[in-house]
Write a protein that binds this DNA or RNA. Sequence first.
DNA 1: TCCCAATATCTTGTCAGCCGATATATTATC
DNA 2: GATAATATATCGGCTGACAAGATATTGGGA
Lengths: 107, 107
Amino acid sequence: MTEPAFFVLTALVDEPRHGYGIAREVEKLSDGRVQLKIGTLYGVLDRLAADELVAPDREEVQQGRLRRYYRLTDSGARALEAEAVRLAANARSASERLRARHAGGMA
Amino acid sequence: MTEPAFFVLTALVDEPRHGYGIAREVEKLSDGRVQLKIGTLYGVLDRLAADELVAPDREEVQQGRLRRYYRLTDSGARALEAEAVRLAANARSASERLRARHAGGMA
DNA sequence: TCCCAATATCTTGTCAGCCGATATATTATC
DNA sequence: GATAATATATCGGCTGACAAGATATTGGGA
């Protein structure tokens, strides 16, 4: 799973959101570190929808602007959970090795 | 940082290794989950060397086969540490949200 | 002896995907 | 009337992952 896809799924965990709203939520939940590019966003959404990790939820017209909402599917939630576990494991193995190195490297 | 690059750096934390040895070490430290492709490996090494996150260490000829060793630079160790922190943060934010969802979603 | 597998390097070509740029449309502000 | 924010979508360039193949040595099995 690519990193933009990971963030899109994370942004959809609590409630359905529309494209622009996802981009703002991702920026918020990463403390401004990740700014999803608009050209990236819709491509990612298409791919996630094709894989059925997200699904179209509803469409609204608010103040004349179309909002197309997406929600996380059960399959998407499982995929996100698995990816989170994988990332945590990767981070842990690197951190452990670095710690051993600074501790004097008992190779 | 791309995932293959992350694994290459991790494999070099404890000691310098040559290309083939890196591939075997990555497979080992990921419990067989990550099998670095040979075409990926050398491209990644070139890019990491250009960025000075790894550096050529020495060359050996063992049993007629050339071994070109690479070592992690201080800059590489710092980059790996930062990436590990970032991955851990990403994994944590996703896991927390998923936990809240299963707990009943107090949105 | 000959072929294959393992070890070891590197190159080339294809495909996926990120992202900048652009287009379109509405509302609000200046 | 121009600009910014909100909101959608597409296109093209570039980077990077990876399959495949080239090259070379050692050792084992048919």
